[in-house]
């Protein structure tokens, strides 16, 4: 599943639903969880518009939250390229499913993994990546609004709607802040 689906949060959801849900419900959930990639795809698209369709199909195949973030960070610093993006995608994939397999084999013999707090690595890596996108007040407003909206959304909304919702809301708020700042200066 890790090798061909390659989408962490929907894989976890599928595992949780595996015995109780119908296949179509699992596929629909996968679609909804991954809707945030629509927004991510839209934001890299301007950097990819000179590429032929084959390249875009290839890049979309392995795009993940992490490789998207490193690739677009590189583009914004003027160092990005389709090869960088593809490399980031492949790095994740090459590690993703073999480590899933290793975890499945070794997991039974390691007691209480949660003790090591390794789940902290994921938000910390994203915090580090987010720092490279910070440019002025608009991004601070976007991040702040998205954070609050995502937390509220995660508590009160089902599924993963809070991520795409907070992403849209936060970037709109950032745009409004940029407009206002631009008008004043």
């Amino acid at each position: 599943m890790s090798a061909i689906v390659h989408a962490g949060s929907s894989q976890f959801a599928a595992l949780g639903m595996w015995l109780s849900a119908t296949p179509s419900a699992i596929m629909l959930t996968t679609l909804i969880i991954n809707l945030r990639h629509l927004l991510m795809g839209a934001s890299v698209a301007p950097y990819l518009k000179h590429l032929p369709l084959r390249w875009k199909m290839l890049l979309a195949l392995w795009m993940s939250d992490e490789s998207y973030a490193t690739a677009i960070a590189a583009y914004e610093r003027g160092r990005g390229s389709e090869w960088h993006f593809l490399g980031a995608n492949l790095c994740i994939w090459v590690v993703w499913w073999p480590s899933g397999l290793a975890g499945a084999v070794a997991g039974q013999s390691i007691p209480d993994l949660s003790r090591y707090g390794l789940e902290m690595v994921f938000p910390l890596a994203f915090i580090g990546l987010a720092a490279s996108f910070f440019k002025g007040r608009a991004s601070a407003v976007a991040a702040g609004v998205a954070a609050v909206a995502a937390v509220l959304g995660a508590v009160w909304l089902p599924g993963n709607w809070h991520i795409i919702g907070a992403g849209l809301l936060g970037s709109l708020a950032g745009l409004a802040a940029a407009r206002e700042g631009g008008a004043r200066s």
Binding site: F126, F133, G170, S171
Partner: peptide, 11 residues
């Protein structure tokens, strides 16, 4: 502004 908002929504 989308990347920073999405990352923030994940973090």
């Amino acid at each position: 502004l989308v990347p920073v908002a999405i990352l923030s929504a994940l973090i």
